[in-house]
């Protein structure tokens, strides 16, 4: 049997080596041509938010500004389908304010006419989730040059880089570098797309959403630069992706401290128990008090202190 198994192992190894050799020869004879998306793609620039780090907390003023950017700019195309108006309490809005935000929301909630049963809309309530700007995917694509604006509820969790990616993407629109066109003449950004080195394939369907300083007017007087607006909306989207973030960390800190103390106590108790194991579990062992006494007597007899 060992011979058969050895044979099987050798067969697998040989096929792997054949695969490897053919892979290498393919690589040598026909080296893969570099792609523009590989060379010019940029990783997100670091972004520092109040919610970063194990002890970070949300900056509610910033979240409110970010919510303002979402509602005045992003919400024209992007839904926020997992978030309810009532969740805005986490941003520091009062119940009355939330009610007003909900009923003033530009898109209404689909409902039925109570008399005729026909499709109708009604004003949103705090218990509703944010109504989507488009009734369905087809409508969303039709209005956006066949591109689907993704839902933003979880966007900072669903993209490598999270909030930093969102911020870099929003501020990263630029003209296609001449160098890129020189190297890859075929990689010209197609009509209707926009060059953005932070986007995976470099050409994004979303037109630059934040274009001018002062595009929104912040109630708290913060200057609404494009960078500031991008930062604020990124922070807001960290919150939408995980409203429980600060609760989670606070609970985590308590649990970690508790477990740390418990583990140390457990370790000490364990050590104490085992240090005596050899002496007490086996009363006839060499560390048994009687034997130790004998040892001490022998040492004393031999004139050794101890």
């Amino acid at each position: 049997m060992r011979f058969i198994l050895g044979f099987i192992g050798a067969v697998f190894a040989i096929v792997l080596l054949i695969s490897m050799i053919s892979g290498i020869s393919e690589w040598v004879t026909n080296p893969p041509s570099p792609l523009a998306a590989e060379e010019f793609h940029k990783h997100p620039e670091p972004l520092h938010l109040a919610s970063d780090g194990p002890f970070g907390k949300f900056d509610k003023a910033q979240l409110q500004r970010g919510f303002q950017v979402y509602s005045e700019v992003c919400s024209a195309c992007h839904s926020l389908s997992l978030v309810s108006f009532r969740d805005l309490a986490g941003l520091g809005y009062s119940e009355a304010e939330i009610k007003k935000i909900a009923s003033d929301w530009k898109t209404q909630v689909p409902s039925i006419n109570p008399d005729t049963g026909e499709a109708a809309t009604r004003k949103a309530l705090p218990s509703d989730t944010f109504p989507a700007p488009f009734p369905n995917e087809v409508a969303a694509r039709a209005a956006n040059n066949n591109a689907l604006p993704p839902d933003l509820s979880l966007i900072t969790k669903a993209r490598e880089g999270g909030a930093a990616y969102v911020h870099s993407l929003l501020t990263g629109y630029q003209n296609q570098p001449a160098e890129l066109l020189k190297k890859f003449p075929d990689a010209k950004t197609p009509q209707g797309l926009h060059y953005n080195p932070y986007f995976a394939n470099l050409n994004i369907a979303m037109p630059p959403p934040l274009t001018a300083n002062g595009q929104v007017t912040y109630a708290d007087g913060t200057p609404a630069t494009v960078d500031q607006m991008s930062k604020d909306v990124s922070a807001f989207l960290v919150w939408t992706a995980e409203p429980n973030l600060t609760t989670r960390r606070a609970a985590g800190l308590a649990v970690v401290i508790f477990l740390l103390i418990g583990t140390i106590l457990g370790y000490l108790a364990y050590h104490q128990l085992w240090d005596e194991a050899k002496r007490t579990v086996r009363p006839t062992g060499p560390l048994d008090p009687e034997n130790q006494a004998k040892s001490r007597r022998a040492k004393a007899k031999a004139g050794v202190a101890g």
Binding site: L5, G6, I8, G9, A10, F12, A13, L16, L17, M20
Partner: peptide, 10 residues
């Protein structure tokens, strides 16, 4: 992967 099989089987 080749070593994995060789390790156990040879």
């Amino acid at each position: 992967a080749a070593y994995y099989f060789l390790h156990f089987l040879v």
